[in-house]
Write a protein that binds this DNA or RNA. Structure first.
Lengths: 343, 343
DNA sequence: ATGTGTCACGCAATCGTTTGCGAAAATTCC
DNA sequence: GGAATTTTCGCAAACGATTGCGTGACACAT
């Protein structure tokens, strides 16, 4: 039945040395402080008995659990799994495990989950679901818990963050539309309490100025959530306003998908009558018609980078050596949802 | 800076009682063995100091970590996130956290991950990535670790499993095709080393007999992986064989998507010339044209159920009280990828 | 032979809880 | 009011690892 676990004590008894010697012999860095002969004898005994270290006990003593917390809004949102794989790809080989939690973008749920993670003694947190101002996580970070944020950033804090080059992406996309002859370009902006939503709106405004495209506030409509339904609603509003536009630059793919759907409902063809663009290049996009022109972000790389920065923090790297800001390059992917402007 | 954590000892000193008394006062079930006045005084002190229990220390002593391991092939596969949310929805409110690992369907990686989870002292494992014969997990289970498998099952073992009613799904789908007048129905089977692949092929065979549809072995082609590429390859093989068919029943959605793509490449229209069906009803399917007729499985419910069964195991429910087999009902969703057979 | 230094290992405390046991205190019973 | 019983709480030993410190052994130089 439930076999008793092998402990250091068992190995010590078996080899006739003290448990502390066993501990050192099995620790790759301490091992050199032990006679090679003894060390290998201990190693052999450990292997023979099938010893597996008890991480819980070690964690209690060292105060390191080799566990990190990963907070995301919702794992069923397809842009997150690749990020998680990226994180895992750097952390897992080093012996870290991650506890993934979904905040559902709810403030109280989020702050409760931060506590859950801290209770479990995570060595650090990668937070891909922060709000623009987020006292819970800011407090945790200021109390010394290593934290990095991903995709978003919390304002006025010393928390390192990894984001995509929203500016460049939006700017290139706007340039693409302009080159296709579009002049009346609408923007379906994302929720303004999320830094992505806010950054992309600002980027849109800046890009317009830089590209000498007229910025038309009346052609900007703001979504409350990053989903298809709200994308559709925004297009409804746009249409209801009666203003003319030949292209819609959306703050993410899901809004764009909803937008295209709503246009289709109204008998407006994308891209012949109205061009639509997205952001993120989420998986499965190539399977959906019309294939969406969008900005590709490097999700996997983002995950890797976040993990790497967190590692530096956890290894006590002095603050000035760890990059506060990492901006990942993006690229625009032109597919079928954009076309020459109709005049 | 890094504030020292409040421990039971701190509260004991503050309230002038022994640490064991504090422990009892803070434990909802032991609390009644303490004078109410003392208990509430302790509670108040704990709140005032902002006490947070150290789960690591508790875990060392009790040998329960309130953590479960969840093994899946690949989180970027869209059918898994909903399952995870299901699991989380029952486990998280009870104070459990889950460590999710991706096996990538690699045997050695999988067995290494089982060890990783055991080293971390998980209280149980939900395994949604087992192979048909899987000694690693079988051994873990037989050594007393609570394990349940999801979507798949390991043969010749006492491990409880939760699966979908593959039989009913395939049968209904075949009936649907037959009712549309199809007689020459191909089957793109899944990998036969996975129980889903194997079960669905068997189901196809049985359903044919039950519905008096002729079973044609030469119209069955087996995929090596559950992905679009192999779905396309299977259709290539089918086409290359020169045999006539008017419908393809695929073992899952991704195979079906690949199949439709390949047909399109060859200038064969789905559904006008060939009907294609899937299995799983994964998210985003409604956005892809032609909208796929498929079998909807209850991913969220499956996750919930797996978690519930695992809980029973972990709570030491006697084996005969926990269901060995749970078969979840499925329903077929008729969309646009199936049509009347062309003759 | 003594002193100095290094090396290899043992000793014991420690991390923060939980829990069986026993003793003191409070309560009940006759 | 004393015995019997129950309640309430303290004591101390775990859980399994890590690690600072100390000590004996041995080598080497003097």
């Amino acid at each position: 039945m439930r076999q008793k676990r092998i402990t250091l004590k068992d190995i010590a008894r078996e080899t006739g040395v003290h448990v502390s010697t066993v501990s050192r012999a099995l620790d790759p860095v301490e091992r050199k402080s032990i006679t090679e002969e003894v060390a290998s004898r201990i190693q052999a005994a450990a292997d023979a008995l099938g010893y597996r270290p008890n991480r819980i006990a070690a964690g209690l003593r060292t105060n390191r659990t080799m566990t990190v917390g990963v907070m995301i809004p919702d794992i069923t949102n397809v842009i997150f799994p690749p990020i998680l794989r990226g994180i895992e790809s750097v952390l897992e080989p080093l012996g870290y495990a991650s506890i993934i939690v979904n905040t559902d973008s709810e403030r109280d749920r989020e702050s409760r989950l931060v506590d859950v993670l801290r209770d479990r003694g995570v060595d650090g947190i990668i937070h891909a679901a922060v709000l623009r101002s987020d006292p819970t996580i800011a407090r945790a970070a200021s109390e010394g818990l290593p934290v990095v944020t991903l995709n978003r950033m919390v304002e006025n804090s010393q928390i390192p963050y990894i984001i995509n080059d929203e500016d460049a992406g939006i700017c290139e996309m706007l340039g693409h539309l302009r080159d296709l002859g579009h002049r009346d370009i609408a923007h379906v902006a994302g929720p303004q309490d999320l830094s992505t939503g806010q950054l992309r709106l600002a980027a849109f405004r800046n890009a317009a100025k830089r590209l000498s495209v007229e910025f038309r506030p009346e052609l900007v409509v703001t979504a409350r959530r990053f989903d298809e339904k709200d994308g559709a609603r925004c297009v409804q509003d746009l249409l209801a306003s009666g203003r003319k536009f030949t292209a819609i630059l959306c703050a993410n793919d899901r809004l764009a998908l909803g937008a295209i759907d709503e246009l289709r409902e109204r008998g407006i063809d994308c891209p012949r009558q109205v061009s639509v663009t997205g952001f993120n290049d989420m998986p499965f996009l190539e399977l959906i018609r019309p294939r969406l022109t969008t900005v590709r972000i490097q999700s996997h790389v983002a995950g890797c980078t976040a993990a790497t920065v967190l590692l530096q923090l956890m290894n006590g790297e002095s603050a000035e050596n760890v990059p506060m800001e990492t901006i990942l390059p993006v690229e625009i992917i032109v597919r079928e949802s954009t076309a020459q402007a109709a005049h």
